[in-house]
């Protein structure tokens, strides 16, 4: 039976983790490689790096992070943030990323999804969607949630599926950072619309939120950042909790 995945996400800026795990045994709380290793040793099903480096000059720092992590962690690595072109994707894959998530570039030019999935295979192309609720629908936001596009989320999700996206990473802008839980309606609507796997993101504050994402939101994987930071919950605790609720996870 296919298991539901738990994916911790690390925000990386200029090659350093922004909000890190504050474990006593950590030599360097800002080292993404060391943190990724803790997550993978703890049973993370996949590790996600979100590169939030603002300037182009420091963009190359993420390549070094991926290269070093992939030499130590033998679980899938997904990288997103600032991916603009086929060349960016190629570089990240060559450094050891297994999947690359495309956000703003996929909205501005959906053809990049088609081109990249043909070139590298759908299995490594994730489209990240930042969604905000407006009246009775959700609209896409780009540039890290700063720019409104007016594009309908559900229509866009169908379109990128057709273009060959292997997976969708859906973040609710309304919930992100609130710790109130995923936007369940949004997750459910998208999961039922597309036939590719959906990863839920944005808003997790406790372990019940992970459960709801899977049982009510019908997603295949749950991504969270802050609950795993500062050691509030370990990956192992999260998995054991889901297992106790009857949700199939890899333990």
């Amino acid at each position: 039976m296919l298991k539901n995945r738990i994916i911790p996400c690390l925000d990386v800026k200029n090659g350093r983790v922004v909000k890190g795990i504050n474990f006593v045994d950590l030599k360097d709380a800002g080292d993404p490689v060391e943190q990724a290793k803790i997550y993978s040793d703890g049973g993370a099903d996949e590790i996600c790096f979100l590169d939030i480096t603002a300037s182009n000059e420091n963009r190359s720092t993420i390549y070094e992070v991926i290269k070093k992590t992939s030499e130590k962690c033998f679980v899938p690595l997904t990288v997103g943030g600032g991916v603009r072109s086929i060349e960016d994707i190629n570089k990240l894959l060559n450094c050891g990323a297994d999947k690359v998530s495309i956000n703003t570039a996929a909205v501005q030019n959906p053809k990049i999804v088609m081109e990249s999935s043909l070139k590298f295979g759908s299995q490594c192309i994730v489209v990240a969607i930042d969604a905000k609720k407006e009246a009775n629908s959700w609209k896409i936001f780009t540039h890290g949630g700063r720019k409104k596009t007016g594009i309908d989320v559900i229509k866009f999700a169908k379109q990128v599926e057709e273009y060959g996206a292997g997976e969708l990473l859906v973040t609710s802008m309304d919930r992100d950072g609130t710790q109130k839980g995923y936007d369940i309606d949004l997750m459910q609507k998208i999961s039922e619309t597309v036939n590719i796997p959906v990863i839920a993101s944005g808003g997790v504050g406790n372990l019940d939120h992970l459960v709801e994402g899977i049982t009510k939101g019908k997603v295949n994987a749950v991504l969270a950042a802050s609950i795993f930071h500062y050691g509030k919950y370990s990956i192992k605790q999260a998995k054991e909790y889901l297992d106790s609720k009857g949700i199939p996870v890899r333990i």
Partner: peptide, 16 residues
């Protein structure tokens, strides 16, 4: 065979 959309493809993740 995705059984008329009942199963998602690609089959991604950990299976026993």
């Amino acid at each position: 065979d995705n059984k008329n959309g009942k199963y998602k493809l690609p089959h991604i993740g950990w299976n026993q």
